[in-house]
Simulated scan of single mutants.
Amino acid sequence: MGSEGRSWRSLFGMRAVVILVTVVALLSLATGIANISVPETTGPLGQYIPTSVQQAAGFTGALTGFLMLTSVWGLRRGYRVAWYATVALLPITGVQGLVQGSVLSLPLVSLSLLSLPTVLVNYRRFDNHLSVSTGQLAATAALAGTLVYGTAGTYALQEEFVQVSTLTDALYFTIVTASTVGFGDVTAQSAQGRLFVISLVVLGTASFALALGSVLGPAIQARFSRALGTMTTEQLELLENHVIVLGYGDLTEPLVEELADGSTRFVVVTDDSNTATMLREHGVDVFVGDPSDDEPLHEVDIEHARAVIVATDDDAEDAFAILTARELNPDVRIVAAASVRENVQKLRRAGADTVLSPAVIGGRLLVRSALGESDVESVADRLMEE
């Protein structure tokens, strides 16, 4: 029964979705390119579809293939948005294959229809959310706005341009002008048209540069962040209702492991770059900075934090970190660990809501165990489970 279950998952699981969608993307790309010219071998619907429509389906089919390859990249990472994009693109590839009217497109149509049920039944497997920064949203909006502005403006001023009579012509002119390609086949014939072209070039250059920066900037920043062991700006922007761990030491290590095993988002603030690099290599979010300074705590958004944990081996540094955290967010819950028993009340006066002394707890458990009490191990086990 176990082998049958594994066989079922391999046939209709996440890997099958990625493989099927990849094949559909490659078929869409190949058949689209093959059918850009008038196909010599027509399918059953070829005689009923105009040649211009078949050629248009070839162009759009190649574009859909590229878009679907992008969806494959997202599916491999389990993104939900990639699942939605794939569900939308699969029917489109099927329709484009039919409209292309070629025998070469029949495998594309068949596989598109067969792949859709497999993608649909695996909805729950793609539950990761794609993180999009404010800069990337702004770049997308700027690029889309420039294309709309250029297309609408060129079409409205078509009498001022040579060879512009349709929206397709206007879109073509907008893209080649905004991207500074400028073939010169469409030119402005009046001062009004030239002023519009100047505005389009300025907006196009700015929006394309912004879009390029939003893509390359995070990638470069992520590379430096991995090397330095700290978080990127995009990761910091996504922090909300999270736990902040101030400092890192022997007491902190087990609680970081406990947090990493759970579903709560957390970030460690430490001024030790070597420790930060080590934690980042284990997938832990880290911000390099002094845990007792205001700026690092603002950067990790302590104002919207769920709780703060302070548990290093230095009670004096912990007290300063607690004072800073309490000042920046009077309502946040602060939990601390005192390495010395006499410092428990001091950490409470500094602003901690709860202060535990691992040495005291461990010592009392050891004494009870030495005196022969039988429930000590069960108490320790319950503490570990909790």
Rank of each mutant, 00 (worst) to 15 (best):
A25Y: 01
L26Y: 10
L27T: 04
S28M: 00
S28F: 00
A30R: 08
T31M: 06
G32E: 11
G32R: 15
I33F: 07
A34T: 14
A34Y: 15
I36W: 15
S37K: 14
V38C: 07
P39D: 06
P39A: 04
P39S: 13
E40C: 08
E40T: 15
E40V: 13
T41M: 09
T41K: 09
T42D: 05
T42G: 08
G43E: 04
P44S: 12
P44D: 08
G46I: 02
G46P: 00
Q47P: 03
Q47M: 11
Q47H: 14
Q47D: 15
Q47S: 12
Q47C: 09
Y48V: 05
P50S: 11
S52L: 11
S52M: 11
V53M: 09
Q54R: 11
Q55K: 12
A56P: 09
A56R: 15
A56I: 12
A57V: 02
A57S: 02
G58D: 04
F59Q: 13
F59I: 15
A62N: 12
A62Q: 14
L63W: 07
L63T: 03
T64I: 13
T64R: 07
T64V: 14
T64Y: 07
L67V: 08
L67D: 02
M68T: 00
M68G: 00
T70G: 15
T70F: 12
T70H: 11
S71V: 02
S71F: 02
V72W: 05
V72Q: 06
G74Q: 11
G74H: 01
G74A: 10
L75P: 07
R76Y: 13
R76V: 11
R77S: 08
R77W: 05
G78N: 07
G78C: 11
V81C: 08
A82F: 04
A82W: 01
W83F: 14
Y84W: 13
A85T: 10
A85N: 12
A85Y: 04
A85L: 08
T86F: 02
T86W: 00
T86V: 06
V87A: 05
V87Y: 00
A88G: 01
A88F: 03
A88E: 03
L89I: 01
L89F: 00
L90C: 00
L90N: 00
P91A: 02
I92G: 01
